[in-house]
Design a protein around this nucleic acid. Sequence first.
DNA 1: GACCAGGCACATC
DNA 2: GATGTGCATGGT
Length: 220
Amino acid sequence: MTREKIQQIYELLFERFGQQFWWPGETKDEIIVGAILTQNTNWQNVEKAIANLKRTSVMSLDKLHALPQDELAELIRPAGYYNIKAKRLKNFLNWLFEQHNGSVEEIMSMHTDNLREELLSINGIGRETADSILLYALNKPVFVVDAYTYRIATRHHLIEPECDYEQLRSLFEDNLESDIKVFNEYHALLVHTGKEYCRPKARCSGCPLEMMPHTVETEF
DNA sequence: GACCAGGCACATC
DNA sequence: GATGTGCATGGT
C-alpha cells in the first residue's frame, strides 16, 4: 500500500513537472560547497555566494582549502550564517585533505556506509548535508531527506509526524529501486513541489498530489 | 515588519 | 532523551 503510494507520487510529480536537472551545480566541488551553504537557507542566496567564489576564482576544493577562513566567510556572506558555514566548509576540507589526500576520487571509491559515517563525524555535516553530497556529488544511491520531504510525507500520511530522519529515509529507500537516477529526480521533485504547493500553513491547491488523501494539519 | 528558507550543534533540564 | 536556542542573509 505504502509502496504503491510512494511510486504513485513519483509518477504524478514527474508527469506534471518533468525532469528537474539536479543538482544545480556544474562540478562535484560546486555541489559539495552548495550542499553546505544551503543549510536552512534559500537557494537564491547560495547562488550569490557561489557567484562570489567563481568571480574570485576560488570555486574549487583546492583553492578553498588554501583560502583563510575569514576571507572565505566574507565571500559566502550572502548565504547567511556565514561565519559558521565558513567553519563547516573548513572542517570538511581539512578532513578531505588530511585524511584522503584532498581527493574526491579517493572518497568515491569508499563503501557508501563507511563514507557516510565519516562525513557525519565532521562537525557541521549532518544527515541531509552528508546525503546530498553522497547522492548528488558522489553518485551514491542514498535518498536525501529534507524539510519538504517531511512535510509532504506527513501531510499525505505516509509516515507519522514523530518519525525521525532515518525512518523517513528508509521509507523511500525501501520502497523504490536503489537507483541514483530515481533518487536524484524524486528528491528534486519533492523540493519543487514543496516550494510551490506545500508551504507551511498554506492550502495545497493546484498541487498534483491534491487528489491523494491528505491534510495540512501536520507540521513541524 | 513578520515570516520563511533544500540544518546543525550545543546547552540545559 | 526531549526541548530550546544561536547562527544571518535576502525575498515575499
